[in-house]
Structures are given as C-alpha cells and as structure tokens.
C-alpha cells in the first residue's frame, strides 16, 4: 500500500511581506491607490470648474490645506516610484531588433528617462 501523502503548504495572505522583492512589487501595485485618489481629485476639480469661478476657486483653496499638500507629496513619491518601475520593466515588453540584434535594455530605459525629463520640463514651462 502506498504511504504517499503529499503535503500542501498554505499560502499566507501576507506572502508579500516575506521577501523584499515581493514587498517592492506590492509597493508598485499600491502606487495605484494614490494615483487613483489624485485622479479623483482632478475629476472633482473639473466638476467644480463646470460650476463656475467661485466653485473652482474654492477647490483651488482646498488644495492649499496642509493635509492636501502632504497627500500630494506622498502621491508624488508613489508616482515617481511607478515611473521608475515602469521604465525599468519596459525593455521586457519590447521586442525591438536592429540589424539582427535586440536593442539593448539600457538604451530603451534611458530613452524612457530622456522622454520623461523632456515631458516634465515641457509641462512646467508651458504652465509657468
């Protein structure tokens, strides 16, 4: 008679705390919560804009509250972390071949960073 009795280990719902690599993954995925809230704030801003000048100015004023500024600061850190992870992983989702050789990962990543800087500076200059 077989004595086989394979043991199935359970997966803890806190598996992502067990390993730094997994924790960073969860941090990356968690950035979505802050970016969601930021988008909702902007969406609300559009709503207030549609209600006229007084409403829009009230919205603008609410953004000056210290808690709003702290939130935006944290959201900024998460957004930058998202950009960083997005650019680092970009080469894996691209299959670009030049003259029979795959385009180097470093080139793809640095290309993303250059574009990121151009876009950011452009936005600041246009709005300023």
């Amino acid at each position: 008679m077989s004595k086989r009795k394979p043991y199935q280990r359970e997966v803890s719902s806190k598996w992502w705390l067990a390993q730094a690599f997994y924790s960073k993954y969860m941090l990356r995925e968690g950035s979505s919560i802050f970016i969601t809230l930021y988008s909702l704030i902007l969406g609300w801003g559009v709503f207030r804009l549609s209600q006229g000048e007084a409403a829009f100015n009230a919205w603008m004023e609410s953004l000056q509250h210290p808690s709003a500024i702290i939130f935006h600061f944290i959201a900024l850190l998460f957004a930058i972390y998202h950009s960083f992870t997005w650019f680092s992983l970009a080469p894996k989702a691209m299959d670009i071949w030049l003259k029979g050789k795959p385009l180097e990962d470093k080139l793809i990543v640095s290309g993303h960073y250059i574009a990121f800087i151009i876009v950011s500076v452009f936005c600041l200059v246009v709005i300023l």
């Binding site: 935006h72 900024l76 930058i80 998202h82 950009s83 997005w86 990121f116 876009v119 936005c123």
Partner: peptide
C-alpha cells in the same frame, strides 16, 4: 500606465504642490 509614468509626477508637482504653495 504609460501616460501615468510620463505625466503624473509632473502633474502632481504642479497641481498638488507648486500651485497650492503659490509658487506660480
């Protein structure tokens, strides 16, 4: 995700920090 990676940091910087603290 691509749009967010390129645009969101600068957007947050402008609407969430620079404009509210009156840097413009």
């Amino acid at each position: 995700g691509t749009l967010t990676a390129f645009m969101t940091p600068v957007m947050i910087l402008i609407t969430g920090i620079l404009v509210p603290i009156g840097l413009f």
